[in-house]
Amino acid sequence: MQEKLEHRSFLLLLLLITGLFAYLLKPFFGALFWSCVIAIMFYPLHHYLTERWGGRRNLAALTTLVICAIMVIVPTLFVAASFFQEGAKIYQKLQDGDLDPGAYVEQLKTAFPAVQDFLGRFGIDLENFKSLLADSAVSSSRWIAENAVQLGQGTMTLFLNIGLLLYVTFFFLRDGPKLVMLLVRALPMGDEREHQLFDKFSEVTRATVKGNLVVAIVQGTLGGIIFWILDIPGPILWGVVMTVLSLIPVVGAGLIWAPVAIYLFAIGEWVDGAILTAFGAVVIGLVDNILRPILVGRDTKLPDYVVLLSTLGGFSLFGINGFVIGPLIAALFLTFWEIFIREFNPGFDPSDLSGEAELEEWQDQQEQASESSDRAK
């Protein structure tokens, strides 16, 4: 009895201390999460350098970290700074009256009068839409301008966070396998299950970042380039917006370039409108279909509806980090249920979730029944 009480008391205190430690690290969740993601993405390079340099893990981790900073962090900081600068300029133009979103709606009404009648059937009033667009433009650009000021004022905090991210990533790269083995020993779920879950975690993280993020960056970059070529104001700003929208399945960058193309047609810029439409539909639109299967692969891709729901849910709960966290939670959810089905229903194959095997078996039974009925007649 005493031993049982001591055991339960220890477990209770263990959970309590673990929860307090997690709460202590809450302010650094973003840095820790992306340190883990970067370590997973760049670990194959670290492993290659370690073997090449005779097991010198510290040097390999440091070299990998420098390569990561050059490839990822420096370009990200440059694009972010340009994004906030362009947003601040647009906000200033809106404040000075040099930019009037309502005027664009008026030009669309003049060029396409049938649109107003068509939208009116669905209870959409262009006058209300014009006011909403103006308010949204002011609010969005104000947010960007205010954050641009905060970005400048909080430069020290920003670099401290980046330094923390790189510092933790170094140890994740160097000691990653040891940390995984430590977790496998500590978690009481069975080594086989734990290895399967950690493999799925790494697999989905790589697939999500390589597939969603790379595809989104390529689409946003192409969108920014065509905006720059056509001399549309704020190409970097709209390129970043298209990148973020491309992270959401189904939605995509078309929410930006398509209305701009319509506006170009409305003001008589037929050539620019045609170029933007063709480029958006053919080049930007096909990037997802071409690159995603190459970068992700069919085996690791979640069903489209699961990706959409988990990504939207991730964005709403975790912000920009949600495009990785959402699909990751969904993948772990499916993996847990696959393990459960495999262990408690041995005759069922959890890899065949489409029901095709059951459908074929039912069709065979129906054909056999029909043949038996024909023979009986």
Score class of each variant (00 low, 15 high):
311 T>K: 07
312 L>S: 09
313 G>H: 01
313 G>L: 00
313 G>K: 00
313 G>I: 00
314 G>I: 05
314 G>F: 04
314 G>P: 13
315 F>S: 02
316 S>A: 14
316 S>V: 13
317 L>Q: 09
317 L>I: 08
317 L>G: 01
318 F>D: 08
320 I>W: 10
320 I>F: 15
320 I>C: 03
320 I>G: 04
321 N>F: 13
321 N>I: 08
322 G>H: 14
322 G>E: 11
323 F>E: 00
324 V>I: 15
324 V>N: 10
324 V>F: 07
324 V>A: 10
325 I>A: 07
325 I>Q: 05
326 G>K: 00
326 G>D: 02
327 P>F: 03
327 P>Q: 06
327 P>K: 02
327 P>A: 09
327 P>D: 05
328 L>V: 07
328 L>S: 04
328 L>N: 04
329 I>C: 13
329 I>Y: 06
329 I>V: 15
330 A>T: 05
330 A>M: 00
331 A>C: 03
331 A>N: 07
332 L>G: 03
332 L>N: 01
333 F>K: 02
333 F>L: 03
334 L>A: 13
335 T>I: 05
335 T>F: 12
336 F>T: 12
336 F>P: 07
336 F>Y: 15
336 F>E: 14
336 F>D: 13
336 F>N: 13
337 W>G: 02
338 E>F: 15
338 E>D: 15
339 I>V: 14
340 F>E: 12
340 F>N: 08
341 I>N: 08
341 I>E: 14
342 R>I: 00
343 E>A: 10
344 F>L: 11
344 F>M: 06
345 N>F: 15
345 N>K: 11
345 N>V: 13
346 P>D: 07
346 P>M: 04
346 P>L: 05
346 P>C: 03
346 P>Q: 06
347 G>Y: 03
348 F>W: 12
348 F>G: 01
349 D>Y: 08
349 D>F: 05
349 D>S: 07
350 P>D: 02
351 S>L: 00
352 D>V: 05
352 D>E: 09
353 L>Y: 14
353 L>R: 09
353 L>M: 07
353 L>V: 07
353 L>F: 15
354 S>F: 01
354 S>E: 05
354 S>G: 11
354 S>C: 00
356 E>A: 12
357 A>W: 06
360 E>I: 13
360 E>H: 10
360 E>R: 09
361 E>N: 10
362 W>C: 05
363 Q>G: 06
364 D>P: 02
364 D>L: 03
365 Q>C: 06
365 Q>R: 12
365 Q>I: 07
365 Q>G: 13
366 Q>E: 07
366 Q>C: 03
367 E>I: 12
367 E>Y: 12
367 E>V: 11
369 A>Y: 01
369 A>R: 02
369 A>N: 04
370 S>K: 10
370 S>A: 14
371 E>Q: 11
371 E>P: 00
371 E>D: 09
371 E>G: 02
372 S>C: 01
372 S>K: 04
372 S>T: 09
372 S>Q: 13
373 S>D: 14
373 S>Q: 11
